[in-house]
Amino acid sequence: MKGIELVKLIDTSLCTACRGCQVACKQWNEVPAFRTKNNGSYQNPPDLQWNTWTLIRFQEYEDAGGKFTWLFRKDGCMHCTDAACVRVCPSGALYHTPFGTVGLRKEKCIGCKECVSACPFNIPRYDKATDKIYKCDLCQGRLQDNLSPACVKSCPTGALTIGAREAMIKKAHARAKALGGDANVYGDKFVDGTHVIYVLKEKPEVYDALPVNPHVPLSVMAWKDLLKPLSLVAAGGVLAASFLHYIIHGPKTPDDADNQTKEGGA
């Protein structure tokens, strides 16, 4: 569907961390649950994984004045306008969609993991078994059927909403103003604006795993302007990608994120 540019708003001031979105994402995308352990937090799985494309992060925060509050933040792909991952992706697996989101053609992914190191928000996750990366594509299939993403559909408190870019940014700023205090809008100011924006009750630096001013890494710039066309022309995607990865990041280390155990329960 040739759609309009969309933005998903995550209003953390309405979220009760019921995690309906985490379940709805897996149900819709038919992604298996893993046998997890409790490592001292409600946050489970502990981090984004190849089978977990959105994750509610729980954070206990005491401000300078000693006032305690429990922060919930729905983590996942920010769908940047100037997307570093799309720039570095040699095989065209990652691409910009008409909605402004970053789509993922799984069959094209060659597992080079360039996007993993390029992403300013540390979102893409690699799966050794399939040698591919996985991330939220904002339910591209649903968007084409003009349906809102599965997580937005499941949210019972109205914390997740989606709509035309300008309208949602305006709505976010209005909500931040109404909340007052340190409330702010996060996402519309860097990487030419993201298509997932937050209303945060605290300053961005307070939140775990949330970069204060995310930007496209310099190495990626060089890669795009100077090296990528040359490599693709000369030796085809795979060889060039691994050669360049070696230069920029050193040898390809066995992925440390392979901690997932057997699939499903007993």
């Binding site: 995690r19 298996p32 997890t36 409790n38």
Partner: peptide, 24 residues
């Protein structure tokens, strides 16, 4: 919130169990 009463219904649902896997 992920489980319900003794868990006798929700412990059998793997997407819920993944979020609250064990006693703490």
């Amino acid at each position: 919130t992920e489980h319900w009463c003794s868990g006798a219904l929700t412990r059998w649902q793997l997407w819920l169990l993944e979020m609250q896997p064990e006693l703490y």
